[in-house]
């Protein structure tokens, strides 16, 4: 279980990127953070990944306080960030330390199989399309079997077709080990496709506006009425978060009751 307690981040220049964030993500849950740009979504992921230090509050993973990068926490950045001097295979294997060569080979090959790039193992990253590169970067994070996987708008630079296929690859990898996932997105459809819960954020200072459970069964039918309804609910919450910056949202329990109706 990943828990954020009274988490705040104020940058050196005085920007209050996050203020008093409280959030608990259960094991194997997929939570999607939604909000306009500048809500502190990236900041939040960077704190969990240990790439920045929080100004106040704390982050706990199964009770253990996180300070700095942790082997059980993986992150996929907005850009693929592949190392251009390593082959696709070696990029995926980059974080596999202290693993025997045979085990490494087996794990990387399995991941390559999963993301459908098995025949590209020996190619350079520069020879891959943007979508393929992002798949490699997702595989690089998954292959170390993290308990928590953070994704920062990983598909935002891709076209709609590529994005839909990457959603499937991501869910395919997730099904195997069921890590806890925190996915940042500004695409409501994406959130409803992937997440068990949507967390809507608000800027200045960055904080949580509302949380909505998305209890549709998987695999999700993107054309069905329940999907549409969920999308509309999230959109409404987003709308409120923009229109009434200080308004108190309807709390989670009411939503849950409504959601059970489906």
């Amino acid at each position: 279980m990943l828990s954020l307690e009274h988490l705040s981040k104020t940058y050196a220049d005085g920007t209050r990127a996050l203020s008093d964030i409280n959030l608990t993500v259960h094991e194997g849950e997929i939570v999607s953070l939604i909000g306009g740009s500048g809500c502190g979504k990236t900041t939040l992921l960077r704190l969990i990944a240990g790439l920045d230090r929080e100004s106040a509050g704390q982050i706990r993973l199964d009770g253990e306080r996180l300070s700095g990068p942790h082997p059980a926490v993986g992150i996929v950045f907005q850009e693929p960030r592949l190392l251009p001097w390593l082959s696709v295979f070696d990029n995926i294997a980059f974080g596999l330390a202290g693993v025997s060569a045979a085990e490494k080979k087996a794990r990387v090959e399995h991941a390559l199989e999963k993301i459908g790039l098995a025949e590209h193992a020996r190619r350079w990253p520069r020879d891959l399309s943007g979508g393929q590169q992002q798949r490699v970067s997702i595989a690089r994070a998954f292959v170390t079997n993290p308990k928590v996987l953070l994704l920062d708008e990983p598909f935002s630079a891709l076209d709609a077709f590529t994005r839909a296929s990457l959603h499937e690859h991501l869910l395919g990898l997730w099904e195997e080990t069921r890590p806890t996932v925190v996915l940042v997105t500004h695409d409501v459809q994406e959130a409803v496709t992937l997440a068990d819960r949507a967390v809507v954020m608000q800027p200045k200072p960055g904080r949580i506006f509302d949380e909505l459970p998305l209890t549709l069964s998987r695999p999700r039918d993107r054309t069905g009425l329940p999907f549409e309804t969920s999308v509309r609910r999230v959109l409404t919450a987003l709308d409120h978060s923009l229109k009434a910056p200080q308004a108190q949202p309807q709390r989670e329990r009411d939503r849950q009751a409504a959601a059970l109706w489906w």
Binding site: A49, G50, L51, G68, P69, P71, G74, I75, F77, E79, R81, L83, W85, F94, G95, A97, T144
Partner: peptide, 27 residues
């Protein structure tokens, strides 16, 4: 700096960071 962060995420030591990221990047 973004590639250096990849090294941080995988908790490379300073020496590993120099060998596995800085050196190939400056070659």
């Amino acid at each position: 700096r973004k590639l250096v962060e990849v090294g941080h995420v995988f908790r490379l030591s300073r020496l590993q960071l120099a060998r596995r990221i800085l050196l190939p990047a400056v070659l």
